[in-house]
Amino acid sequence: MERVPILKIGDILLVSIQVDMSDQTAVALQEDLAERIVATGCHGVIIDITALDIVDSFVGRMLSTIASISRVLDAETVVVGMRPAVAITLVELGLSLNGIRTALNVERGMELIAAERDHDRHDEFDDGSDVEPTASP
């Protein structure tokens, strides 16, 4: 069975889906990802679907599930690299990826997660204990 690799970049886990997703692959990916989030303590997950020509309701549900799992483990999920044709098809079919954040490419996705973490820190934990150079004054 094919497994989808999960790469760690800084505070973010990057999942690039390059194969056709089957039930088994999807379940394996969900398990792997959940374990990696807990093991690494990462706060962001980026799922890159640039290579996917077809996103159907199955893949859509898988993405939603991954997003929900990550949210429970306090990690933000961003789906990046959706192709125009895929987006048009999803809209025509009336499918919406509820609860999933999207960005145009990996770079924008990382910015989005960084901004989100920044926001959270300022809102909730603004006690100065966890200040990075970029977040100063």
Partner: peptide, 11 residues
Amino acid sequence: KTVVAARLMGA
């Protein structure tokens, strides 16, 4: 539809 498709892509 255009707006929703763009949102799906993250714009």
